[in-house]
Design a binder for these strands. Structure first.
Length: 551
RNA sequence: UGCCGGGUCGUCUAAUGGCAGGACAGCGGCCUUUGGAGCCGUAUGUGGAGGUUCGAAUCCUCCCCCGGCAGCCA
């Protein structure tokens, strides 16, 4: 049950296995995914979602979606909506549990009062500069705040008045009284509440004091009865603080486990940077198909299955890693190879006239050789076709299997043709090919023993449908742009190529947004959901086919 | 520099004192009416030095390297 696919267990499963053995938490498992609604979810969040949901599923436990919405200055309803959509799309089942940390503000407030009464928290009048300078450094201890020893009564009074809104932003904080000399800076009297007179996307103007993440996060997990609070490595240093809070309160105390966040080559993953790409117009919104966001991958043609499988492939560990984007591409190719129907589409058309063919006919084509149940379709053929410009070369290099002057090639599902004449314009560019076809070589007829090395795709010029095709490449020129201060200068200027005169086979006329296809020999493509209209089909290239042809 | 964490093929990840394995990428071959897919094969790795042990990626010591932390962000 712990490793349904027979994969080896990651270290978190081993921890949980041990917990189950000793009946910790009455042998129950309850996980959660706790995003802050200050941006769209990215593939790194997908890793976390798959991990947390996967654990709940594998141990017959529960999985919550909980918004960590403690900072009204950065959070918006639009982000809440997108996050819910993305988590659902990924297939992580939170049942009816869409929860909000901000719904626990009153409980947290009461707990803060409890700590004040125990002498474990105090109201501090230092401003943010003063707090910073008295915190000490990595190597020197901090200094106690002059307000550290206020009486319980005074603290209670001040804290209540903070809540009532008597003080302006930044003038007072509530701090935990721990140890200003702790070698762990997080324990140097961390701030629990700050004053922020700001409308909250969910709580409106009910509050003007907001809990910090450090104070809120562990409380939220505790309130929800989370057993295993799984988070990323940067919170490792905070664990002693969460432990301290929960122990002071004597409430349910989840076990925090940290794992290494995902880094993907040739992209950036921080929400701050993704927001900048969006805001400054480097990309076409959060769901731009070049973005590593879940909505970007969805629009690009990725499937939830492929992303889940990717999460499985990369595993979970504690060491920092930079995962090769090839692993993600493998996951989507693997899925689409099995499930996407094949069609023919010519991205850069070159006209071919078959001089000895008259009339027209329909040829039978297989929809998916990996899945016979996908059936067949009929593709119209006539004496005027388009083939890919790249599939013809006047002066081919050695090993070129496609059309050359005087050479033969098979038209997929049709006939073998021979190039008789090359027609050029004034500039010397090839604009048309005159070819003859061999009627004995009809695909599947068995009437010919002729063998040719090359098979190329084509569409009937008379029947073709016009389409726009968008080819995407990596967004950055360097493997790890996030490590570079000057990361914006590493944006790849040709990451999007728009082809507006592609010709696709007529069966595609009825395709719907997000429908996925393999354009034979070209790659996997998906009908764009943003720009496709009744009049105009727009396709996004999800990923190329692996191509072993090297010139 | 204080504290915390981490170093295994090019990349990601297993091996929990007993043959360093898998996936991706690469390379070679087979097959193929997609130069796709599939199949077969193949090279490449335990940061370093000592120690314990019949036996060490694993345990011990020292060293080196990498990441995180000094927001009223999360």
């Amino acid at each position: 049950m712990n490793n349904p696919e027979g994969r080896s267990k990651n270290f978190i499963y081993e921890i949980i296995d041990d917990d189950m053995k000793i009946n910790k938490w009455e042998a129950k498992v309850h996980t959660r995914f706790p995003p802050e609604p200050n941006g769209y979810l990215h593939i790194g969040h997908a890793k976390s979602i798959c991990l947390n949901y996967g654990i709940a599923r594998d141990y017959n436990g529960k999985f919550n979606l909980r918004f960590d919405d403690t900072n009204p200055e950065k959070e918006e309803q639009e982000y809440v909506d997108s996050i819910i959509e993305d988590v659902k799309w990924l297939g992580a089942d939170f049942e009816d549990r869409i929860l909000y940390g901000s719904d626990y503000f009153e409980q947290m407030y009461q707990w803060a009062i409890e700590l004040i009464k125990k002498g474990k928290a105090y109201v501090c009048d230092l401003n943010s500069d003063e707090i910073r300078s008295s915190r000490g450094t990595l190597t020197e201890p901090g200094k106690n705040s002059p307000f550290r020893n206020r009486s319980v009564e005074e603290n209670m009074d001040l804290f209540e008045r903070m809540r009532k809104g008597e003080f302006p932003n930044g003038t007072k904080t509530l701090r935990a009284k721990i140890d200003m000399a702790s070698p762990n800076i997080n324990l140097r009297d961390p701030i629990m509440y700050r004053i922020v007179h700001e409308e909250h996307h969910r709580q409106g103007s009910d509050w003007c004091i907001y809990p910090t993440y450090d104070w809120a996060h562990g409380n939220e997990d505790s309130i929800e009865g989370i057993t295993h609070s799984i988070c990323t490595l940067e919170f490792e240093n905070h664990r002693p603080l969460y432990d301290w809070f929960l122990d002071q309160l004597g409430v349910h105390h989840p076990q925090q486990i940290e794992f290494a966040r995902l880094n993907l080559s040739y992209t950036v993953m921080s929400k701050r940077r993704l927001l900048q790409l969006v805001k400054e117009g480097y990309v076409d919104g959060w769901d731009d198909p070049r973005m590593p966001t879940i909505s970007g991958y969805r629009r690009r043609g990725y499937t939830p299955e492929s992303i889940r499988n990717f999460a499985e492939i990369i595993g979970v560990a504690k060491r920092d890693a930079l995962t090769d984007i090839a692993l993600l591409e493998y996951a989507i190719r693997d899925d689409l190879n099995k499930h996407a129907n094949r069609v023919m589409a010519v991205l850069k058309p070159l006209k071919v006239v078959i001089t000895n063919y008259t009339g027209e006919e329909e040829l039978e084509a297989v929809n998916n050789p990996e899945n016979i149940e996908a059936g067949t379709r009929r593709v119209p053929f006539c004496n005027e076709l388009y083939i890919e410009q790249n599939d013809f070369m006047e002066n081919p290099p050695k090993g070129f299997h496609r059309l050359i002057p005087g050479g033969e090639v098979r038209l997929r599902y049709a006939y073998i043709i021979k190039c008789k004449e090359v027609i050029k314009n004034e500039k010397g560019e090839v604009i048309e090919l005159r070819c003859s076809y061999d009627p004995e070589t009809k695909s599947g007829s068995g009437t010919s023993t002729k063998k040719v090395k090359g098979v190329i795709h084509w569409v009937s010029a008379k029947h073709a449908v016009d389409a726009e095709v968008r080819l995407y490449d990596r967004l950055f020129t360097v493997e790890n742009p996030g490590a570079d201060e000057d990361w914006l200068s590493k944006i790849y200027p040709n990451s999007l190529e728009i082809i507006n005169n592609a010709k696709v086979e007529p069966s595609l006329k009825s395709s719907k947004p997000l429908d996925k296809f393999q354009f034979e020999r070209m790659g996997y493509f998906c009908v764009d959901q943003k720009y496709t209209t009744k009049e105009k089909l727009v396709f996004n290239r999800t990923v190329t086919l692996k191509d072993s042809w090297k010139k």
